[in-house]
Amino acid sequence: MIVDKRFLPVADVFFRMFDKPGQGGGAIAAYLHGEPVLDVWAGWADKQRRWAGDTIVLSFSTGKGVASTVLHRLAERGLVSYDAPVAQYWPEFGAAGKENITVRELMSHRAGLHKIRGLVPGRYGLLDSEKVAAALAAAPPDARRLTGPGYHAVTYGNLVAEVAARVSGMPFQDLVRQEIAEPLGAEEFGAAEFWYRVPPEQRHRIARLFPKVNFLPAPWATAGAVMSRMPGVKGLAEAGMADGFDEVMRSPRAHNAVMPGWNGVFTARSLARMYGALANGGALEGDRRLLTEETVEQLLEVQTRRRDYVLGFRPNWRLGYHPAWVATRKQPLRSIGHYGFGGSGAFADPETGLSFAFVTNRLGNAYTTISDGRFPRLGGAVVTAARRS
């Protein structure tokens, strides 16, 4: 464990969140100016097992930030241009009126391809990345993309992974290792857990998620069908409520797939290390460079300030990230990161040189499994500590 004395208040808040088995378990980690200052864990990975330093957990949309960083590494080497049409690298994508949609639009949720309801047949069809990519390539874009972004809750990772694989000629999971884990020296620092397809020999380390994923009083299929016809929440149902997806998310079969929009498995340590580089001009410990300072500056630029027609508010999307929303009066407006279903999340704040990550197996709170106040509270505490240091 690591607890820099300046961050003792953050650790204290964290430990109080996991003092009973019913609260599950979790971990937090932070870097400041490229150096680790916080790495602690607590609670239970399941009913019979305490959370350990090497416990890993499904962190849902938190993985979108990792997938985005892979593509930025490729862009920095000139393999892909943000303002080029996606179809330049993925010709099939140009079907159904999508020939002019750019990589920049795709990475800021303006491709109009948020829908997963009916995208591929079969309950487990969403775990077949090739079928999903083919279906997205053939699909027409939603016309609302011209008026604002629409959060690609599930499909974003497939889109980014396909572009990355096409321009590099490598499977996406190999790219994650080559472009993220290896440059960060992750294995050396015990932070190699950047996984979408989890190796079978490592799966015993995965914490059990609870309670059930369904956050609604009605059965998932019924609620999804009803919501998909209701103005105001229609986009949310289209983007994240395919029939049976609540079961798919909890199935062990999810760890056989590479679906970077939602099935990333990480430790807080690994996420904090990646974002630690982004918070520190693209580098850690001086000589481990992930991105150039110029690229990091591009990542901080807001791509659209329009209302998101899926989420119903203005996320101010960056290139694959959103800003950190934390419980502090002065928000870190130049931050980038991504939160996940259930409450996990990670971000970088270049203004303070801080990165922070939180992962947990306890989805939400007693009222909803979507999320809760733990991450904003911890994030606010760690930003305050960094500003005082």
Rank of each mutant, 00 (worst) to 15 (best):
W325I: 11
N316C: 13
N316Q: 15
L300W: 09
E301L: 14
E297P: 04
Q303Y: 12
P323L: 11
R305N: 12
R289Y: 06
R305H: 12
N316Y: 13
T328M: 12
E301V: 13
V310T: 04
L300P: 08
A324Q: 09
R306Q: 14
L291K: 08
T295Y: 09
Y309Q: 02
Y321H: 12
P315D: 09
E293H: 10
D308L: 11
R306K: 14
G320S: 08
L291M: 07
R305C: 00
Q298N: 11
Q298D: 12
Q298R: 15
E293Y: 05
T292D: 13
E297Y: 03
H322M: 15
E297I: 00
L311F: 04
E293W: 04
Q298F: 02
R289C: 06
N316H: 15
R306S: 03
R318M: 04
A327W: 12
W317D: 01
R306G: 03
L319Q: 10
R307M: 10
L300C: 03
R305F: 02
T295S: 13
R289K: 14
V326L: 13
G320Y: 03
Q298M: 11
L311T: 05
L299W: 10
L299V: 04
A324K: 13
L311G: 02
A327L: 12
Q298L: 13
R307G: 00
W325S: 06
N316L: 07
L319A: 11
T295G: 06
G320H: 09
V310R: 02
D308M: 10
V310K: 01
R305D: 11
Y321A: 05
P315V: 07
R314W: 01
V310C: 02
R307D: 01
N316M: 11
H322Q: 15
R329F: 01
T328N: 10
Q303S: 09
N316V: 01
V326E: 01
P323H: 13
Q303P: 11
H322A: 14
W325Y: 13
R318N: 04
E294A: 15
Q298C: 05
